[in-house]
Design a protein around this nucleic acid. Structure first.
Length: 865
RNA sequence: GCGAAAGUGGCGGAAUUGGUAGACGCGCAGGAUUCAGGAUCCUGUGGGCUAACACCCGUGGGGGUUCAAUUCCCCCCUUUCGCACCA
């Protein structure tokens, strides 16, 4: 290596070194504490993008740092390889999803290796391999045995573009999570996982996730949506039966003046059957059902109702109250029927005003009485119960409890808890996923495939035409099966599993990736789990991260592991963004460019108008603001790509692309490289470090700064993951080194301290830029590779200050700064401050009221008046 | 509408416990080097007013607590994210 920095050369050399030496193989070792760091595995889409670069750079810093700290680090990587894009690509390119996926994995693996990430590649997994997905099927069968997997017909979310069902979690703002196409409702028979069995535990254990961002915890809490209340039966008037309602406000039951039913409610049509209202009811139900759920929920959708003509009895007041159908009542939540209390629910209030229904106040605020006829909106707060028979005078809180007990006594209802969380629909009408291990026999019905017949493999010879419907339906070989029970002719389930099943337990597979008698070796799981640090995007807050928690608990209950939570600490990294450029007339037109090009001066190729700078947005193909990491790495090297993404912003915040920022990162590495190589001889000749006593003051300062920097970098990584400030501190240290060695190599007296500082810089940089750090470490004469070196230590003695800079304020404004010996008494510091000529100028003629001192930092002289 | 987070130079961002606001990087300006460009090195760089020293102002806006506020409290504005008829 010469004194010019050639990143490609350096990076190739060290990547080969790591590969040859298997530097990052992980093995269980009971003698050392373990550390499992994991980044969310990628979908093999074809090429890595900047989001991957950021995600994996962050993870690599953590992995390499923890390794240097002496922990036994597990840092694996794999592929979330099933999914729809492979199938679409197969249709478009006339290839096979498997071919496409394998090619992508091959390509992306070399890209990741090119980044110099410290993975144990021996543990690599891909979810599309039968060795992996057979365990999806195995888990499915275990779930089926325990009633955690079941099939039912229901109204499900259907994406017309992806031609498949979606789970509730995969519907974002009424659209498909993948393609944003508006989702429609369909009635289908589907397989479900009973995640609702774990609703309470999933909710309760959120309190244990102290290492998770509060935002994600809140999102999961809201998604699970626990409501504590009561179920109340309202007997139908003049006929058998009752309407069951769920309410969280049983304290307002005396104010229930009508009932509202969802149009999907079983009684919706039933109640007016055979009456003059029958056909009108049908019309209303059909009209509302046509509107999708998302549209029905739109902000100012007007409350609409239909009077069924039927009545029921409020068991508490004995009153006959009318039953309405209402467009805003959801069949999916509670019982699909609500008791309407117009005085204390805004929706019921609006509905009552519109249809002229009575508003009865049954809760009073403490001081000001409420008058129904003066109300302009519902009173939603708790208060004192009134007009509530024997319950009047109780607080809402007491009332809820007393009414619930009373209900149970009378047999009118019971206490009840409801969750918003629905069971997880896992059937997908697509090819490229795990086949559901079920056959349908005319005689025996639904029959699970026996464990010893797993895996049920995907047939390879299937046409991909894009004509719609699952390609598996065209594979007679696949569909035809014999019934495992009776041996008769049977048909295989043609639906595959949601790919989120694959990712719900992959972190467990890594602990024993080739284990072939269970999804994973429980002993290894005990050794490595839980994941100590998980890193990925926030978009999975209620998808993957909820499913993975559910699987962990369910697998625990199957006796496979002991842990109840998979991820102890979670870091959700921000997005990678870039400014966009657009023509006012035409669409986004201008692709991102690497350093140097001034897009602002470009013109629109359609109309030749100058383009305008648009907003800074998340890098995406549609916004044409993508930077291809491969080009970045080719131009500057992986170390610069890593350094830039780590330095430009703290990990949890969005990162804005900056070509100049990349240049800056590269310049820093070049500067460090040049300094080491230009002083190679004198550095090699010098010993490292010198004791304090033998040093002149300027070198004492450099030595002090070296140790302070080690401390700061350690704390920034350890406690906050603030890599940007850690890197800034290292840059400062290099600035100080070059300043100290300004006089050139002839002044060799400073070399020991300079050398010690450089060793610290290089070691501290290793987690961020491992290739260049490894090379410079060797150039400094170190024989042991940096991969095996311990994290640098700082000494308290070396950091001790000889002098202190004291800020002197007068009336809270900084007026002077004085330097005092580190051991000066506060009395002495005060005297010095008062004697300071600048300070005296502000004191003349005025009386000193008091003097505030902060030890070792500040004196504030407060004047009278 | 509800909830959360954020708002600091020309830009990305620092300031960890209430104690020197603007670290570090980018950009810009001046200088050195160079035939020139590039690269590199040095110096400067919040605004105002200055010849300079000094002084004044300054962390979205307004108020408050404090000897001292980017940091704590109240009100308002803006942006981003999440939830959005959940009974």
């Amino acid at each position: 290596m010469d004194d010019k920095y050639h990143p490609q050369e350096v990076e190739e050399k060290w990547q080969k070194f790591w590969e040859d030496n298997q530097s990052f193989r992980a093995a269980e070792d009971p003698s050392r504490p373990k550390y499992y760091v994991l980044e969310m595995f990628p979908y093999p889409s074809g090429r890595i993008h900047m989001g991957h670069v950021r995600n994996y750079s962050i993870g690599d810093v953590v992995a390499r740092y923890k390794k240097m700290r002496g922990l036994n680090v597990l840092h694996p990587m794999g592929w979330d390889a099933f999914g729809l894009p492979a199938e679409n690509a197969a249709i478009e390119r006339k290839t096979h999803p498997e071919t496409w996926t394998r090619e992508n994995i091959l390509y992306m693996r070399t890209q990741l290796k090119r980044m110099g990430l410290s993975y144990d590649w021996e543990r690599e997994i891909a979810t599309c391999e039968p060795e992996y997905y057979r365990w999806n099927q195995w888990i499915f069968l275990k779930f089926y045995e325990r009633g955690l997997a079941y099939k039912k017909a229901s109204s499900v979310n259907w994406c017309p573009s992806c031609e498949t069902v979606l789970a509730n979690e995969q519907v974002i703002d009424g659209g498909c999570w993948r393609c944003e196409t508006p989702v429609v409702q369909k009635n289908l028979e589907q397989w479900f996982f009973r995640i609702t069995d774990y609703a309470e535990e999933l909710l309760r254990d959120l309190d244990r996730l102290q290492g998770w961002p509060g935002k994600v915890v809140t999102m999961q809490r809201n998604w699970i949506g626990k409501s504590i209340g009561a179920e109340i039966l309202f007997p139908l008037a003049g006929r058998q039966g009752a309407v069951r309602v769920f309410t969280t406000r049983q304290d307002t039951v005396y104010g229930a003046t009508f009932l509202s039913l969802a149009v999907e409610h079983p009684l919706a049509l039933e109640l007016s059957r055979g009456t003059s209202r029958e056909s009108a009811a049908k019309e209303f139900v059909e009209r509302i059902q046509k509107i999708s759920h998302a549209r029905r929920g739109e902000e100012d959708a007007e409350k609409e109702g239909f009077i069924t003509g039927a009545y029921c009895e409020n068991p508490f007041t004995g009153e006959k109250i009318p039953i309405y159908l209402a467009n805003f009542v959801l069949m999916e939540y509670g019982t699909g029927a609500v008791m309407a209390v117009p005085a204390h629910d805004q929706r019921d209030f609006e509905f009552a005003k519109k249809y002229g229904l009575p508003v009865r106040v049954v809760i009073q605020p403490k001081d000001t009485p409420l008058k129904a006829e003066e109300m302009t909106e519902a009173y939603l707060e708790d208060g004192i119960m009134v007009n509530s028979g024997p319950f009047s005078g109780l607080s809402s809180h007491e009332g809820k409890e007393k009414i619930a007990l009373f209900l149970e006594e009378k047999g009118w209802g019971k206490k009840d808890i409801r969750y918003r969380l629905r069971d997880w629909g896992i059937s997908r009408q697509r090819y490229w996923g795990t086949p559901i291990p079920i056959v349908y026999c005319d005689k025996c019905g639904i029959v699970p495939v026996p464990e010893n017949q797993l895996p049920v493999t995907l047939p390879r010879d299937v046409p991909f035409t894009g004509k719609g419907g699952s390609p598996l339906l065209d594979s007679k070989n696949f569909l035809d099966a014999s019934c495992p029970k009776c041996g008769g002719a049977a048909r295989r389930e043609s639906d595959t599993m949601d790919t989120f099943v694959d990712s719900s337990w992959y972190f467990l597979r890594y602990v024993s990736p080739r284990f072939d008698s269970a999804p994973f070796d429980s002993k290894s799981a005990t050794a490595w789990m839980p994941v100590d640090q998980y890193i990925g995007g926030v978009e999975h807050a209620v998808l993957h991260l909820l499913y993975a928690r559910f699987f962990t608990k369910a697998l625990r209950d199957l006796g496979l592991t002991k842990i109840g939570e998979p991820f102890t600490n979670l870091l959700t990294q921000g997005m990678v963004c870039k400014e966009t450029y657009r023509c006012a007339e035409h669409d986004w037109l201008f692709p991102g460019e690497l350093a140097g090009s001034d897009q602002a001066g470009w013109r629109c190729p359609k109309c030749n108008r100058p383009v305008e700078k648009g907003r800074v947005e998340k890098m995406s193909k549609s916004k044409k603001n993508i930077i291809d990491p491969e080009e970045l790495i080719a131009a500057y090297g992986a170390d610069t790509a890593r350094l830039f993404t780590l330095f430009a912003a703290p990990p949890e915040k969005d990162l804005e692309w900056s070509a100049q920022g990349v240049e800056g990162a590269f310049r820093f590495l070049t500067r460090l490289w040049r300094f080491v190589f230009q002083n190679k001889e004198s550095l090699a000749a010098a010993r490292s470090d010198a004791s304090h006593g033998e040093l002149p003051p300027d070198l004492r300062n450099l030595r002090r700064m070296t140790h302070r920097t080690i401390k700061k970098v350690t704390e920034d990584i350890e406690t906050r993951f603030h890599f940007n400030t850690a890197i800034a501190a290292i840059m400062e240290l290099l600035n100080a080194v070059t300043a100290a060695a300004k006089d050139g190599p002839e002044s060799n007296r400073e070399m020991p301290v300079v050398k010690a500082a450089l060793e610290a810089i290089v070691a501290l940089l290793y987690p961020f830029v491992p290739h260049v750090a490894s090379e410079l470490w060797a150039s400094l004469g170190q024989n042991v590779p940096l991969d095996l070196a311990p994290w640098p230590a700082y000494s308290k003695e070396a950091m001790e200050e000889e002098n202190l800079l004291i800020v002197v304020q007068v009336d809270g404004k900084v007026r002077s700064k004085i330097t005092v010996p580190a051991d000066a008494s506060s009395e002495y510091i005060k005297e010095e401050a008062l004697a300071d000529p600048k300070v005296r100028g502000f004191l003349s003629g005025k009386e000193i009221h008091r003097v505030v001192q902060v030890p070792r930092r500040l004196v504030n002289i407060v004047l009278e008046g």
